[in-house]
Design a protein around this nucleic acid. Structure first.
Length: 578
RNA sequence: GCACCCGUAGUUCAACGGAUAGAACGUCGGUUUCCGGAACCGAAGAUGAAGGUUCGAUUCCUUCCGGGUGUACCA
């Protein structure tokens, strides 16, 4: 079982200092964090200040005792007391070098597997069928995919499920439009565009014409009652839509274990509502069936509706049935919903109802902010001028292609196309993942497709630069074998900074799941790339020799692997040349 | 009304309750020893307001200001 520096230091610190101090509460958590300023050493603990409070003793005195107890640890070259009671650890170069060897030999690059794997269902993306995906869908899709990748990597059993909107009331309008004004030829060439067109047309009419609205409802009721004609049309819509959706997911490199849409749960809704009624959790109010939360103050006036007056079901109903399925069939321990922040109340209600029915799974709404239009207003689905996701991706690849043509015209044509795709898609994904998920932002092409600064191409470029070193070696295998024969000395400050940063990978990856923050990983990788570039400027590899060269090659190999693995966790690929 | 989210450099974003609030873009100034300059080094520049909690607050609590979202039969 590998431990991060943080964990190992905390464990050794607790043992050494606990013994030296004598009286420490049994449940005290010895915390160690990476120092944020080199002057404060490499790692630090504020345990003395926390203990001072419980033990009612002077924090500096405690810090002195702690520091003294840690002096002899093999990890520490120097331990200092500073400020109001910080204990700063300066790690031993030798110890750090030895850890690098361990990391190099580890296929997991030092990241520990979770001791108790859980079965986690990740629910994300969830587009509606018969509508094109627009930029707004990118967040759920990419954040969800990243969280699933990270959860898998640290050892959880992950099930990804795309809960597509394949049964909503929008089908009333689509059915009517299909029957009245479908352009069959256009349906062949661009099905989703045609479905969107008829939907919009009917929607427009329905706004001003009650009769049209009623006709839509009638079509929907027929569909829900199992009318053969409507069911056939519906199936065809779903089929055509799924085909196009899968294309986009293939482009994005996002995969799902299941596509269990809303319709999958149709015949479970009635029993579910009856069960809730008979158990007394739900009641009839104004002809609708709802669950009241009279004992929860903030929900007291916000009941959860699970059946309409007209007998129709709502999406809370479907979501409850979905939870049942995920727990009973999949034995889910955790369910993560990567869905926009506006749905907060909905999930609060649904989770509450599920808990009252005895659901034991940990259910989390991993909320994210919105993408705003140029007018700083929410990009509404029906505003008509959403930017299509496909268009964004195409433009991204095109821009990347332009840069490649300029920078590396000699690249073979096939490789150019491949690289442009990886760079372009990577840039779009990274733009999303590198910021906190709750942040709203205004959509700008340049922002999303930027290839400069803190972007995926910067990280990919770092990878390319490392790899190009290995291409220049006569015998990379032999050189690397020699490099891992001894721990690197880390004599140059830039080497040491890079080494510390490489080691932090083990700390950062698990933390992504603590607060569902892919941006923490993105930030880390950016810092790693910067540390590498600085090292690259300061420390020649190929022109060095002996142990220096061996140590630098080791750092290069680890940098390449951590970058590739880290980017992979973000869902971003690397290339060998660009 | 009630609930939730967000106010940080000119701009876009960071920061488990920790020390002098970090980056990126843009601006200004550097890098002919160099393995890919899509790079590196440096400079200027910010926590909406007021209280409170404490050794210590961008972070937690209260109030206010400003923006957004949601709130019984759409999803």
């Amino acid at each position: 079982m590998s431990m991060s520096i943080k964990q190992q230091l905390a464990a050794e610190l607790g043992q050494a200092a606990g013994a030296a101090l004598g009286v420490v509460p049994g449940d005290f958590q010895w915390q160690v964090t990476a120092a944020n300023d080199p002057r404060f050493g490499d790692y630090q603990t504020n345990a003395a200040m926390l203990l001072a409070k419980v033990l009612r003793r002077n924090p500096r005195e405690l810090a002195t005792v702690i520091a003294g107890a840690c002096e002899g640890l093999p990890a520490c070259a120097r331990v200092e007391v500073a400020g109001p009671g910080f204990v700063n650890f300066h790690l031993s170069d030798q110890w750090l070098g030895a850890r690098l060897l361990g990391q190099q030999a580890d296929p997991r690059l030092g990241v520990a597997a979770v001791p108790e794997p859980r079965r986690v269902v990740v629910d994300f993306s969830a587009p509606n069928v018969a509508k094109p995906m627009h930029v707004g869908h990118i967040r759920s899709t990419i954040i969800g995919d990243c969280l699933a990748r990270v959860a898998r990597f640290v050892g959880h059993e992950v099930i990804t499920d795309n809960h597509i909107g394949d049964w909503g009331t929008q089908f009333g309008m689509i059915l009517l439009g299909w029957k009245q004004s479908l352009d069959a030829a256009r349906l062949e060439t661009d099905p989703i565009a045609e479905l969107l067109r008829i939907y919009r047309e009917v929607n427009e009419h329905a706004k001003s014409d009650q009769a049209v609205l009623q006709a839509c409802r009638d079509e929907l009721v027929k569909l829900q009652a199992g009318d053969e004609e409507n069911l056939a049309i519906w199936r065809r819509c779903v089929d055509l839509s799924l085909r196009q959706l899968r294309e986009i997911y293939a482009t994005l490199g996002v995969g799902f274990d299941h596509f269990l849409g809303e319709s999958f749960y149709n015949d479970r809704l009635q029993p579910l509502v009856e069960d809730l009624l008979s158990s007394g959790l739900a009641e009839v109010s104004d002809g609708a069936v709802c669950v009241f939360f009279r004992d929860v103050p903030e929900l007291a006036d916000k009941p959860c509706l699970i059946r309409k007056q007209d007998g129709g079901y709502l999406y809370a109903t479907t979501d409850l049935a979905t939870i049942d399925h995920r727990i009973s069939e999949w034995r889910a321990d955790d369910i993560w919903y990567v869905v926009g922040a506006p749905q907060q109340l909905h999930f609060q209600q649904v989770f509450e109802v599920a808990r009252r029915r005895g659901a034991r799974a940990q259910m989390v709404h991993v909320a994210h902010g919105s993408i705003l239009g140029q007018d700083r207003k929410l990009m509404k689905t029906r505003s008509g001028d959403n930017v299509g996701l496909r268009e964004v991706l195409e433009e991204a690849v095109e821009r990347a292609r332009g840069v490649i043509d300029g920078k590396n015209p000699g690249l073979p044509e096939a490789e150019k196309a491949e690289v442009a795709s990886i760079i372009g898609i990577g840039a779009v994904k990274y733009a999303e993942l590198s910021q906190h998920r709750m942040t709203d932002y205004v959509f700008h092409w340049d922002r999303m497709l930027s290839l400069q600064g803190n972007t995926a191409p910067y990280l990919q470029y770092s990878y390319v630069r490392v790899r190009s070193i290995f291409r220049k070696l006569d015998d990379p295998g032999a050189e690397l074998a020699a490099a891992v024969a001894a721990a690197p000395a880390l004599a140059d400050p830039a080497e040491r900074v890079l080494a510390l940063q490489l080691q932090r990978f083990a700390e950062v990856v698990p933390e992504v799941l603590d607060g569902f923050t892919p941006n923490a990983l993105a930030l880390y990788l950016h810092e790693l790339a910067r540390a590498f570039h600085s090292f690259f400027e300061a420390c020649p590899v190929l022109k060095s020799d002996g142990p220096t060269r061996a140590g630098r090659l080791l750092l290069c190999d680890l940098t390449a692997r951590v970058l590739r693995q880290g980017l992979d966790l973000l869902g971003i690929e690397v290339v060998e040349r660009m």
